[in-house]
Amino acid sequence: MEREVPQQVKQVQHFRGRTLPAAALVGVLTILLLSTAACTAGQSSLSRGEGFIQAKGSDTMVNLAQMWAESYMQSNPEVVVAVTGGGSGTGISAMINGTASIANTSRAMKQKEQEQAAAQGIDVVENIVALDGIAVVVHPDNPVEELTLDQLAGIFAGEITDWGDVGGTPGPIVILSRESNSGTHVFFKEHVLNRGDSKGGVEYAPEALLLPSSQAIFEEVSQNPNAIGYVGMGYVLSGVRALKVSRGEGLPGGSPSIETVQDDSYPISRPLYIYTRTDSSQDVLDYLDWIRGPEGQEIVRELDFVPLKQEDTT
């Protein structure tokens, strides 16, 4: 009887020792094979191949870019446009290393990224394709109607932590931010927390929840009366309420809308960009012209972004 125990122990160890590395090995090999295949496929078809446009970047823009692509492909069946998200930074690095021909971004390229493109010998063209208001959203039951930029900065930096301090029902403020790979995260930090000074050094509070998508912020705000978050205007759907934002105490505040963003009375808005390479194919150039033309801009309006003013489009 005493001897049988080690045997049983051995059996289990036997199971651990042999099956797991074998399974791991198969897994590793599969991943290696797949990634090699993906790399080669990426190199051959995603560079400036005929009739194929890979657009990658901002999650804020991903629905817009998808609609552009679908609508464009209907009228131009010889062109295929594939759209993926992942964040503005992801899109720019994909364009620089050649796996995407178009980078959709919700922020301008950073100095470092410009240098990187230059180091690879790539000239980059910046195109403004739409405008976007950043809406500050709260739960519909939250009584707060309007905040100033200073109050917003105080909340997101963690200096104001109670709704009672900004005219609401006393209770903890739960800050929702996007992850640092999001253009919206960077824009909000620069323009609200640091009031336009990119080296201002004010940080989001460490308590801020960093959520992986605008959808996740929408979900959490619609469920949590304590929460405050920021999303692109297109994400202001029923279930959350956009606050009015003013530039200061006593100054008039506006809700985010096409008119207030176009005439700049709403203080938190930004251009949306498409970056391309100067040596882009004719397909890409035609697509860009179409996006900036009336049809593309109509889709911008349908998706609750802000179309370019007419004089900007020419």
Partner: peptide, 10 residues
């Protein structure tokens, strides 16, 4: 979350 955004070799 962050690997997708980082500049290569930064």
């Amino acid at each position: 979350q962050e690997m997708g955004e980082t500049v290569f070799r930064s």
